[in-house]
Design a protein around this nucleic acid. Structure first.
Length: 828
DNA sequence: AGCACGCCGACT
DNA sequence: GTCGGCGTGCTC
């Protein structure tokens, strides 16, 4: 803390601050604090600084010192933005840990952590110079284009202009135009967070007097009937609600904004602007009491005991075992002890379902945080967590970065979900693992929950690093579903299969429909058909960027690339040989839906996949339709399996299990088990056993048998044994280093060279380089170098430091143009 | 991440 | 010759 020498004396010490900039830069930079900002500066506050020639950024103060840097003259900070710090010291430590652990820069962590609205950055804006009479005849082509555009739209960014001219380097041109006085160039800083302001209306209190009011009506009804309507509507609304906003009044009265405006001018109505939260929710009926089953109670006791020994616990409970109720109990106790709770869920499971459920117990003390929130909403959540108003936060992976004051418990639900891992921009962190470190920093307990734990968590639990609590009984006497495996080969031979639906599945669907129950069909592919093939010459249309087969989408009539989004018209004749004999191979959800509609014309069939849930509320709408039984059959991709609760779905059909089972990945079986058991776990309800039909060409597949037996432990053991003989051993830490390049030749040489360099330090622990599953993503070829380390036999900090070193050296001296290196730490 | 500087190939 | 693309290095 700083000392105050009294208000009449200014603090004359010369202070320097070290700041984190929201950029991918390796180090923090030092700025000087102007005297008049001395008493405002504090660690964790945002400051505005100029970085580089003209750019202005929001930076976070990470440290304060009095030592002037020797090798350079520090710039002054421009301003301090906050009265109170927006991040705690502990968060800065957390950022540093993430940066170190996931091999990235702290600025990149800051970028992921802070809501964008808290990061103002300057943008170079170009305007016409009004003092300069534009004589267009003297301009060259490019200048003419720019001036023309500026006359239509007074402000353009540098990026706009680059697009306009279709060239990359525009600064020289702009500079020239600036020197000629044609344009002005300015750095504009925008504060992105805007509180929501609403206008509230009140009636002038003199009209509380009935006579006055009657008189008023008399006048208004004659001269301004619209205004009379508005006053009437106000009086009606005021009976049912305390505050009335202007928009509500406009809507209720039908009088239009003009009528209300003139009422305000006549001082019949008063208008008042107030800042309102975007996050208001009715704290309606708080229904707090439910009974735990004996099995749940035992598990709850075990968890509490477990937390006395261990900081991290794995709760391995079958689907529908009522894990959420256990979480609620634990959260309740923690709330009562005055600590904060973070409840992490995969993005997709953050539906109003679960939010509403929790809000019932915790009312307005619960906040929700995920990527579908806009910037302003995120800032409001951030501030409410910071102030401690939110005791519980329900959020997706990025909520590990929220400014908790005193975290007591972190629940990671569905901990195996790989959506906890961020892949593309750095930091490439896994929120599950990060939350374990976060918990450690706060002295908080971490509960990992899953019906199908990830192998790494199960391994840690078995070796005593984590505690383990099991919950093997479904809640409320719901039976485990009956699983039937149907051989597609057999039914094809017997000709009992219709389209993609075996007689067994059709029978079950019909039964369900007859009983007014619902059905979910699972097909792990979207679109109509994943491959288009010429029967004559075997030509297959491929993506021009990604080299993968294009998927036919009937709804658009186009061929889509599922990696980069490229689309082209579906050809009628083969582009290679001109034949008309083009056929579709394989099938996706679109085809499942279409064919089923032909077979069951009376059933209400809907589809849920990436294509049908693209718009903002589509996902929720489909769920509501299902909930309120406007849908009989829902066909979908993985989406239908992830953490959704459907009350009256009794039949689940897996149209083809084979695409799951044959996935060419060393974790394929683990994933297939997870997917199959998750989907099937959705079947059934109280008093009605669910039925799952798995259609496959390979009914004897080991994983299918394990799913039927609900034997996760057997899966774990067999997989572990098999992997010991494989080159990716199970008990190792893996670090992946991806190299990208557009040219496969160059990529190959670069990857080989990097692997050689890494081998100098790590010998045979370097695997690769090799192509990962998809060799080409978004225009780049990728090769992966995998480093494996025996878990207990290595100092990971040292390893990370060495890798960082090698990569930095490689980056500076040996990397050819267009290459990108992405270290990706997966402590497996 | 920007932005400047400097080298190099392609064009009036 | 010059313009624009692209690699490289630097920013407190």
């Amino acid at each position: 803390m700083l000392e105050f020498t009294g208000s009449e004396h200014t603090d004359r010490r010369t202070l320097f601050v070290e700041v984190v900039l929201p950029l991918g830069i390796a180090i923090n930079y030092t700025y000087r604090v102007p005297y008049d900002l001395n008493d405002q500066i504090a660690v964790g506050k945002r400051v505005v600084v100029q970085f580089g020639k003209s750019k202005i950024y929001t930076a976070i103060v990470a440290g304060i010192g009095e030592q002037a840097p020797e090798k350079y003259e520090a710039k002054y900070i421009i301003d301090v933005l906050d009265a109170e710090p927006v991040v705690h010291q502990r968060q800065l430590q957390f950022w540093a840990w993430i940066a170190d652990y996931y091999l990235c820069n702290i600025g990149e962590v800051m970028n992921a952590a802070l809501p964008t609205a808290l990061k103002l950055a300057s943008e170079t804006k170009v305007e016409l110079n009004k003092e300069y009479p534009v004589d267009k005849t003297t301009l060259n082509d490019r200048e003419y284009l720019i001036v023309d555009a500026l006359e239509l739209q007074p402000e353009l960014t540098v990026n706009d202009i680059a697009k306009l001219l279709g060239q990359k380097t525009v600064m020289p041109i702009l500079k020239m135009m600036f020197e000629k006085g044609i344009i002005n160039i300015s750095e504009e800083v925008s504060d992105r967070y805007k509180p929501r302001v609403r206008t509230f209306i009140t009636l002038n209190p003199i009209y509380r007097d009935q006579d006055q009011l009657r008189e008023l009506f008399g006048i208004l009804e004659k001269r301004a009937p619209k205004q009379a309507d508005a006053v009437l509507a106000y009086i009606q609304l005021s009976r049912s609600q305390k505050t009335i906003s202007k928009s509500e009044l406009v809507e209720a009265s039908g009088a239009g904004a003009a009528a209300i405006k003139s009422l305000i001018e006549k001082e019949i109505l008063f208008a008042e602007e107030k800042i309102v939260s975007r996050l208001v929710h009715d704290a309606d009926d708080l229904e707090a009491n439910f009974e735990l089953s004996p099995a749940q109670q035992t598990a709850l006791d075990e968890i509490k005991q477990g937390f006395e020994q261990k900081d991290v616990l794995l709760l391995h409970g079958v689907t529908s075992a009522g894990k959420t109720q256990l979480y609620i109990r634990l959260i309740e106790e923690m709330v009562n002890s005055g600590k904060q709770i973070l409840y992490l869920l995969p993005e997709i499971a953050l539906t109003t379902h679960i939010v509403e459920r929790l809000r019932k117990y915790f009312g307005n003390a619960i906040g929700v945080y995920h990527s579908r929130f806009n910037d302003n909403e995120r800032v409001e959540v951030w501030q409410k967590v910071l102030s401690g108003q939110y005791r519980v936060v329900l959020g997706a992976r990025s909520s590990v970065f929220l400014p908790f004051k005193d975290l007591g418990l972190i629940v990671v639900d569905e901990e195996h979900e790989n959506s906890y891992k961020q892949f593309d921009p750095a930091p490439r962190y896994n929120a599950r693992d990060a939350s374990i470190y976060l918990g450690h920093m706060y002295g908080a307990k971490v509960l990992l929950g899953s019906a199908t734990p990830s192998f790494e968590s199960f391994y840690n639990a078995h070796n005593g690093k984590y505690g383990l609590v099991k919950l093997t009984e479904r809640f409320g006497g719901v039976e485990m579903p009956l699983i039937e495996v149907v051989s597609i080969t057999e039914e094809t031979k017997k000709k009992t299969i219709q389209s993609h639906f075996t007689s067994v599945l059709m029978q079950d669907i019909n039964n369900a429909l007859a009983n007014k129950e619902q059905v979910i069909l699972f097909q792990n592919r979207r679109g109509y058909a994943p491959i288009m093939l010429c029967k004559i010459c075997a030509y297959t249309p491929k993506c021009i960027n990604c080299d993968v087969s294009l998927t036919y989408h009937k709804s658009s009539g186009k061929l889509h690339c599922h990696y980069c989004g490229y689309k082209e018209d579906s050809p009628n004749i083969c582009p290679a040989c001109g034949s008309t004999q083009l056929e579709y191979k394989g099938f996706g959800t679109e085809k499942v839906e279409a064919e089923l509609k032909l077979l069951l014309p009376d059933a209400r069939i809907a589809r849920m996949d990436l294509d049908t849930t693209r718009s903002k509320n589509a996902f929720q709408n489909i769920l509501n339709d299902l909930d309120e039984h406007r849908i009989d059959i829902l066909a979908g991709t993985q989406m239908v399996a992830k953490g959704l609760d459907f009350a009256s779905v009794t039949v689940i059909g897996i149209i083809s299990a084979d695409s799951l089972l044959k996935y060419p990945d060393f974790r394929a079986n683990e994933r297939a088990y997870q997917m199959l058991s998750q989907v099937s776990g959705r079947a059934g309800r109280r008093g009605k056993q669910g039925k799952v039909v798995i259609q496959t060409y390979d009914p004897g597949h080991r994983v299918i048998q394990q799913v039927i037996a609900h034997d996760y432990v057997d899966l774990y053991n067999t997989e572990m044994t098999e992997r010991k003989n494989f080159k990716y051993p199970p008990f190792y830490r893996l670090i992946e280093i991806n190299i990208k390049h557009k040219d496969p030749e160059i990529l190959h040489h670069q990857a080989e060279a990097l692997a050689r360099d890494l081998r100098k330090h790590f010998d045979d622990r370097v695997i690769g380089p090799e192509y990962p599953l998809v060799g080409r993503i978004r225009n780049y070829f990728i090769k992966t170098i995998i480093l494996k380390f025996e878990k207990d036999n290595i100092s990971m900090p040292k390893v990370r430091a060495t890798i960082k070193d090698v990569i930095t050296q490689f980056n500076t001296t040996k990397l050819s143009k267009g290459s990108v290196i992405q270290p990706d730490v997966d402590p497996y």
